[in-house]
């Protein structure tokens, strides 16, 4: 099944990936990263590998595997 890898410490917490994910597979973490912001985490259930999250991410923090 498709999945994504999020580079926690690259994420700036803009949450654009959460907005564009058609399956709602991303959410804000409750733990801070190195930058001191809450990054995005992958829920990992129903990813189709559409790459929308990676395409919209301004910080290239997401890798998509299919």
């Amino acid at each position: 099944m498709a999945h994504i890898k999020i580079k926690r410490d690259k994420c700036k917490g803009c949450m654009l990936c959460i907005k564009v994910c058609p399956k709602g597979q991303l959410k804000e973490d409750s733990v801070l990263n190195k930058k001191g912001i809450k990054p995005v985490v992958f829920l990992g259930q129903d990813c189709t590998g559409c790459t929308f999250c990676g395409v919209i991410c301004p910080d290239t923090a997401i890798e998509v595997y299919k």
């Binding site: 999945h3 890798e63 998509v64 595997y65 299919k66």
Partner: peptide
């Protein structure tokens, strides 16, 4: 599993 999107 193939990488379909990453930093260029």
């Amino acid at each position: 599993m193939k990488k379909v999107f990453s930093r260029t």
